[in-house]
């Protein structure tokens, strides 16, 4: 998923314009010319300049149309699925851990992740279980991080 230099330049320029427009309504400190909008506007200005520089450089180099080059891995359906799977696992942890608690969620997330990567089932179960408990004990008990609890696994806390 690689964009060409011209596309990157255009995206950068558009990003600069978007930041500038979004900063228009940020108020200054009362009685002053500067405030919340100063920094975003400065960032927008220099980002726009970088965008223009990249577009000019790409046009001089002979690029005429913006484009997107797909990486080698995007041609493999499995690779694309695995990429979305890892993102999905993180989202699943965010959603499920407050409901189920840390230990079962962490165990399931690691187990699924290992199975996706081709780890044998017994190894995946053992490693996921041990790691979940080690993390819970070190973070939850030793470092007092309030990891979400599971009612049915209260004896671990």
């Amino acid at each position: 998923m690689r964009v060409t230099d011209l596309t990157l330049g255009l995206l950068t320029l558009l990003g600069g314009i978007a930041i500038y427009l979004s900063a228009i309504n940020f108020h200054a400190i009362p009685g002053q010319d500067y405030g919340a909008g100063t920094m975003p506007r400065a960032i927008a200005f220099v980002t726009g300049l970088v965008g223009i520089f990249m577009i000019t450089k790409a046009v001089i180099a002979g690029e005429r149309l913006p484009g997107l080059q797909l990486a080698e891995w995007t041609r493999s359906g499995g690779a694309v699925l695995r990429m979305f799977a890892v993102l999905g696992l993180i989202v699943a942890y965010i959603v499920v851990s407050p409901l189920l608690g840390f230990l079962p969620t962490a165990f399931c997330v690691m187990l699924v992740a290992m199975l996706i990567l081709g780890v044998r089932i017994p190894t995946a179960i053992i490693v996921s279980a041990i790691t979940s408990v080690v993390i819970q004990q070190s973070f939850g008990k030793l470092l007092l991080v309030p990891l979400p609890r599971s009612d049915f696994l209260n004896f671990f806390w």
Binding site: V86, L89, I90, A106, V109, M110, A113, M114, L117, V119, T123, V127, S128, T131, S132, I135
Partner: peptide, 8 residues
């Protein structure tokens, strides 16, 4: 094995 553990 390492990558899922790192993710956690």
């Amino acid at each position: 094995v390492l990558m899922p553990v790192i993710l956690m």
